[in-house]
């Protein structure tokens, strides 16, 4: 199984990838940054997804499927990079990053709910993906199921457990 979603790749009309890039780059980078918590990595992931789509555009089922393909590629790419990062963290010594504090302040300054984002980061990756796709991308359960390759029942239960874990982490906060 190749990393990007092959299921939707069959001989059909090709989409206008550069136009899609212009239209959806920002939203996809935002999706990626919510999954990997790092803008450069998010941008790399999204760029890889578009290159992948470009290379396979002639085999895409329909131009309308392009965005779903990109979303799947971005989610898969983010997961792959997170796992790679976990491996690197074990082999590369951690150096104190002075920018963290400044970044934290900046987040606070623009009203980011850092407590909620921190709680979200404690959830398993799959749970984070479901919640981000549900509450950031506003996808339906069926769309999330398609993106993640799981059943809608799993989406429903994962979202439910994720919210309960968030509620518990935030001390019953509402």
């Amino acid at each position: 199984m190749i990393a990007t979603p092959t299921a939707s790749l069959v001989d059909r009309t090709a989409p206008d990838v550069p136009a899609l890039y212009a239209a959806h780059w920002r939203s996809l980078v935002r999706l990626a940054v919510l999954l990997v918590d790092d803008v450069p990595t998010a941008e790399d992931t999204v760029q890889d997804a578009f290159i992948s789509l470009y290379r396979n555009q002639a085999r895409l089922r329909a131009p309308e499927a392009a965005l779903a393909y990109l979303r799947q590629a971005v989610v898969n790419g983010c997961r792959s990079r997170l796992r790679h990062r976990a491996v690197v963290r074990k082999t590369v010594p951690v150096v104190a990053d002075d920018s963290t504090g400044a970044q934290q302040d900046a987040f606070d300054a623009v009203g980011v709910d850092t407590e909620m984002i921190a709680a979200l980061r404690t959830l398993p990756p799959r749970m984070q993906e479901v919640l981000v796709l549900r509450y950031w991308s506003d996808l339906s359960e069926a769309q999330i199921a398609h993106t993640l390759g799981i059943s809608t029942g799993s989406v429903k239960s994962t979202a439910h457990r994720g919210l309960e874990k968030l509620r518990s982490t935030l001390g019953g906060a509402r």
């Binding site: 920002r26 980078v29 935002r30 999706l31 940054v33 919510l34 803008v39 998010a42 900046a106 987040f107 623009v110 009203g111 980011v112 709910d113 909620m116 984002i117 979200l120 919640l131 981000v132 509450y135 950031w136 919210l163 968030l166 906060a173 509402r174």
Partner: peptide, 14 residues
């Protein structure tokens, strides 16, 4: 709250 947090985080980052 989660929806708002994600929106703010995404917009702030990008």
């Amino acid at each position: 709250r989660l929806r708002a947090a994600l929106r703010a985080q995404a917009t702030q980052s990008v």
